[in-house]
């Protein structure tokens, strides 16, 4: 009886995973390749697809460093200081996790769109944010804001401030302390945060799609490309792009595993 229950539980778990994870994952690869490699190659060499990849990489390349710098500063301030509002600040940083990405995108439209708070001013000076790269970068920064700070704060707290004080007593400047003492101590936590930020930045759909206007070949990122290609019955193109995104996910997962192991060793 006990044994049967045990098998039943395992069957339920495996069935559930198969239904929501394994079969859809396999289906992506099947759909992309079931007519051979050719349709896939032609899909990933189309101009719109290459533009989408380019845009995705550019957005990540801008959002990632900005959030790394912001995340490091915030983490240090929170980990090394006691001040009123510290707990509140920590929850505010987590806000992008709890706000729906679509709402985040909408917020940006409401601020910078043509009829938004800053819309008129921006139009007068000729700066376009909505339906353009700046808006998409803003949306991406918003949704990936918490990752670095969240990963680095506990590492900094565990490290304590004594090593920094020791370095200072040995004559090191703030800059030298950061590069020679803090960074080597937090590097695995930081790298983990960077990985999470990057995979989310490249995979984000909701917020970016609201502000982008989804103009194929112009303001379409990889996830948006997938949606549009599918809607337009370009199934091979859609699944071809999906395969690329899925592979990105797999690579992130593997690196995440490696980094996580290092984090726990330290």
């Amino acid at each position: 009886m006990q044994l049967n229950k045990h098998y039943l539980l395992v069957a339920v778990a495996v069935g559930y995973l198969a239904l929501v994870l394994f079969i859809p994952g396999a289906a992506v690869f099947y759909e992309a390749f079931h007519l051979g490699i050719k349709p896939f190659l032609s899909a990933v060499s189309s101009r719109d697809f290459i533009e989408a990849v380019k845009l995705t990489v550019i957005i990540a390349a801008i959002a990632l460093p900005l959030n790394v710098i912001f995340g490091l500063c915030t983490a240090w301030v929170i980990a090394r200081n006691q001040f009123p509002g510290r707990a509140l600040l920590m929850s505010i940083i987590d806000l992008p996790f709890s706000v729906s990405p679509v709402v985040a995108g909408l917020m940006i439209v409401l601020l910078y769109g043509r009829n938004g708070w800053f819309g008129g001013f921006l139009e007068n000076i000729g700066v376009k944010i909505i339906f353009a790269l700046p808006g998409m970068v803003l949306a991406t920064i918003f949704v990936t804001l918490p990752f670095v700070a969240r990963e680095v704060i506990p590492v900094l707290e565990e490290m304590g401030s004594e090593q920094e004080e020791a370095a200072r007593s040995l004559g090191a400047s703030d800059w030298e302390i950061f590069w020679r003492v803090i960074l080597p101590n937090i590097r695995w936590g930081l790298l983990y945060g960077v990985l999470l930020t990057n995979s989310r930045a490249m995979g984000e759909f909701g917020a970016v799609s609201v502000v982008s206007g989804s103009i194929l070949g112009k303001t379409s990122t990889l996830p948006i490309f997938v949606e549009q290609a599918y809607k337009n019955y370009h199934t091979e193109a859609a699944f071809g792009a999906a395969v690329i995104l899925a592979l990105l996910g797999v690579v992130t997962l593997v690196m995440k595993e490696i980094v996580e192991r290092r984090v726990h060793q330290h």
Partner: peptide
């Protein structure tokens, strides 16, 4: 020169 109770060596 400062010496800390918990050594504070650079790990």
């Amino acid at each position: 020169g400062f010496v800390f109770q918990h050594y504070a060596l650079f790990k």
